[in-house]
Computed example of a mutant assay.
Amino acid sequence: MTTATYLRPGLPSPVAENDGLDAPYWEGARRGELMVQRCKPCGNWQWGPEWICHKCLSFDVGWQKVEGRGRIYSWERPWHPVHPALKDQGPYIVVLVELPHAAGIRMLGNLVGDPRQEVRIGAEVEAVFEPHNDAKPPFTLVHWKIIGSG
């Protein structure tokens, strides 16, 4: 699912790290897919990206597409801008989403919709993809939306 632009222009464009470690995540987001790391020898899921498996210490860590659905594990509603481009955009909601299809790993993201909406721990959410095709280079952000919300 894609969404209209949620964030205002003027923020720095996210790009893959120079070492290329997180490039598969950003490439997947451009395709509308949520990609996370998975160790090839032991099957451990992990986030954020690392060169080594957190469980078995193997360097044979790959990337796998996962279902972009999860549950809100935690959240906060910041009222202060964390960047000058967000000066008049507060409040906004940041959620920590637990992904049951990836052994419960957790990812941060914005919760789209009314910034004053009621947020419930355990609420089901789905990934929404916000493409920025005019950016140099183009990128896509992953946000979250409560399932069943308008």
Rank of each mutant, 00 (worst) to 15 (best):
V61Q: 06
R77K: 12
R116H: 14
K40C: 04
C53P: 01
H143T: 14
L57V: 10
E50G: 06
A16F: 09
C39E: 10
I93V: 15
P81S: 06
A103R: 11
D134K: 12
Q37C: 07
A4C: 10
C42H: 09
R120E: 11
F129I: 03
W63F: 15
A85W: 04
G43Y: 04
P138Y: 10
G113W: 13
E17S: 15
R31C: 03
A103Q: 15
R30Y: 01
K55D: 12
E27I: 11
A103H: 07
C42R: 04
G148M: 06
V82D: 02
E17L: 12
V125P: 00
R8M: 04
C39K: 09
H54Q: 11
D114N: 14
P115S: 12
C39A: 09
Y25R: 08
A29V: 04
I93Y: 01
R30F: 07
R116D: 11
P91K: 12
P9E: 14
E130A: 03
P78F: 09
Y92A: 01
E124L: 08
R69W: 04
E124G: 01
V66H: 03
P138H: 09
E76C: 15
L34V: 14
V82Q: 12
P14A: 06
G62V: 09
Q46G: 04
M107D: 01
A127Y: 01
V142R: 12
I93A: 09
G90I: 10
A103I: 03
G113M: 13
E50I: 00
T2L: 09
V119F: 04
T2A: 02
A127R: 05
H101L: 11
L7P: 00
A16T: 09
V95L: 08
L86W: 13
P131Q: 03
P78K: 10
W26E: 05
S74V: 07
L111M: 07
M35P: 01
A23D: 08
V66G: 02
R71Q: 15
E33G: 00
L96F: 07
E50S: 11
R38W: 03
Q64V: 14
G150R: 14
Q37M: 08
D88Y: 10
K65M: 12
K40P: 00
Q89R: 14
S13I: 15
P84V: 10
C56T: 09
F139G: 00
